[in-house]
Nucleic acid binder design. Structure first.
Lengths: 336, 336
DNA sequence: TTGTAGGCGTTATCAC
DNA sequence: GTGATAACGCCTACAA
């Protein structure tokens, strides 16, 4: 591996000069700079990030907490697309990232210590158990943190506008004449409470009386559970005309159950999903779903984090809300 | 950030002693070791990976090339599950990983130089354009490399047994009485050639005469294209009784087209997918598909790479083949 | 069993 | 405009 010293020797200048020239310091003459850069390229010089990090205390490395022990995670379009987007934006800004885990080798290591070990300049918490003391410790630490979809005291948060999502869904199905609307939601998280908020608020505004037997809790990204809840709802003598699912995967589980009952979508019952995953546009009937803007969420999360890292003084902490859009499909029947 | 020196001062010993104690060197007495470790924990010491890397020339960081510019990538179960598995195995062995890109900040940087910049101990090429000169350069370099699903001279490769996959599929549909079998395959890659090999070989063995009009090229993970090819096949006057798709996503595109023709699966036409993605088990009819063992592939890739890194002398380079298994579903009709 | 000191590759502060 | 030189935090001979 070629190092500064090698270039310096070849050029008969000092290491300091080479270092400065390669970083376009104005202390060095233009001509010298040119010659040094050319020489470095010829010799195949690549900087050593470890040495730079050691010296400057900056790693250009971001820690990403992506704990997908549950049924969601990387296999979920929402997150994989977001992760992709984060990666693209980080790359654009000259950063790499490292997954921060709570184990490393044979030892336990807290998320925070893992991040410290790698000297991460900042951290993005994409998915995690926010009740985990280790996560709390991480978020409270001195290192810049951005969280996704969950507000933590005094920390920057990028949120998908889940309230707005349900507002739009309910308004849409209402406009199609539906009044008896079931809502199968996910487990108890910030996301879920926002969605429930949007749901109830809009129902009230529109004068829809919510039948509590139509509100069921399932689990995100868990079709079987959604299927079960669907069955319970279909067992009611006074069925809803429309079911809103926690996500598109859950809908798929529900669809199977609906079919088992000999019902057709949307002729006999309407459905709405959430996320607008790739397949939801491919399969027939095309699913009506609320597409979260995960590309934007990932991008903004990175931008906010880097702003905080690079301009800590001028950085203003405020939560950011990213709205998605309703993808109209063929699964909501007009019953007006 | 606490460093060795801080601990040394507090304990009235030298930095060297602390360093040795923390790594359980036998040079240091048990008692001293205990006391130092306790002190380090109390003070919240975390090692600085940059300093260690600089000194030891080992980063415990693996570069991962995962170029998903195409329609596949992270959004694909096969890869996301593999990546997850790789991450788990790396973590278990005390390694982190970094995505290696060919851009960083405002400058172009080759894959190889990116990996060098981060001082990666080794590299796993998961998806990439193997004709890209930069990838060739990377694979030829001095750094240990493992590739997935593509053989490169003298390099370790972990391959999903695509030939076997098609052997099993063809044998299975044959056993169900099918003789007119269409095969829509993906674009021209190593993977595809193996699958085609398995397909033709087995057809020959079983005495099936392959109708060339039944062989179509589509694109992996691209339902629309598969739909188009399906249409062409269905337009033939002498239709096949079974269609094999490049992957489960492509099947979904094909299914839509089949439905448009008023045909039912599997009553009117049988189908087989590839990958056995999560949703293939949820949707009805349950798709018959060949599930690649991506968990194992990811795990073995890491194990082989680390073996090569840590025991370069005793490491024997030989390609590894990981077979999957046929997931029988409801989409192949018994027409015997 | 413990301490000492040199050096990994780089940056940055001084001199010159 | 360029050159010495001292760190950055850690490991590891070698010395004591």
């Amino acid at each position: 591996m070629i190092k500064l010293k090698d270039i310096a020797e070849r050029m008969n200048v000092s290491v300091g000069t080479v270092s400065k020239a390669l970083r376009h310091s104005h202390e060095i003459s233009e001509e010298m700079t040119d010659r040094i850069i050319r020489c470095a390229n010829e010799m195949g010089y690549v900087a050593n990030s470890s040495a730079i990090s050691l010296k400057t205390n900056k790693s250009y490395n971001i820690g990403v907490v992506f704990n997908d022990k549950t049924h969601a995670g990387l296999g979920h379009d929402y997150f994989s697309i977001m992760l992709n987007s984060m990666r693209d934006e980080l790359t654009l800004q000259g950063y790499d990232f490292t997954f921060i885990t709570h184990m490393l080798g044979d030892r336990n290591i807290s998320y925070l210590n893992h991040a410290r070990y790698r000297r991460c300049d900042g951290i993005i918490v994409v998915t995690a158990d926010f009740n985990d003391p280790e996560i709390v410790e991480l978020v409270k630490a001195e290192i810049p943190v951005v969280t996704i979809d969950h507000i933590f005291n005094n920390r920057t948060t990028i949120q998908s506008d889940n309230e707005q999502g349900l507002v739009e869904i309910v308004k849409y199905v209402f406009s199609k004449g539906h009044r008896k609307i079931a809502f199968i939601h996910g487990e108890d998280t910030t996301v879920t409470s926002h969605r429930l908020g949007g749901f109830y608020k809009t129902c009230e505004e529109l004068g829809i009386e919510v039948d509590q037997r139509f509100i069921k809790e399932a689990l995100y990204h868990y079709p079987q559970k959604a299927g079960l809840m669907t069955r319970e709802i279909l067992a009611l003598e006074d069925r809803p005309t429309c079911i809103i699912y926690p996500d598109d995967y859950s809908y798929m589980g529900g669809a199977t159950e609906i079919e088992k009952h000999g019902l057709k979508i949307p002729e006999d019952i309407s459905v709405v999903g959430y996320d607008g995953i790739f397949l939801s546009r491919i399969l027939r009937p095309v699913l009506t779903s609320y597409k979260q803007n995960s590309v934007e969420i990932g991008k903004v999360a990175v931008q906010k984090l880097l702003a905080q890292i690079e301009h800590p003084k001028s950085f203003v902490r405020k939560p950011v809300m990213i709205s998605g859009c309703l993808q109209k499909g063929q699964t909501v029947k007009d019953i007006n």
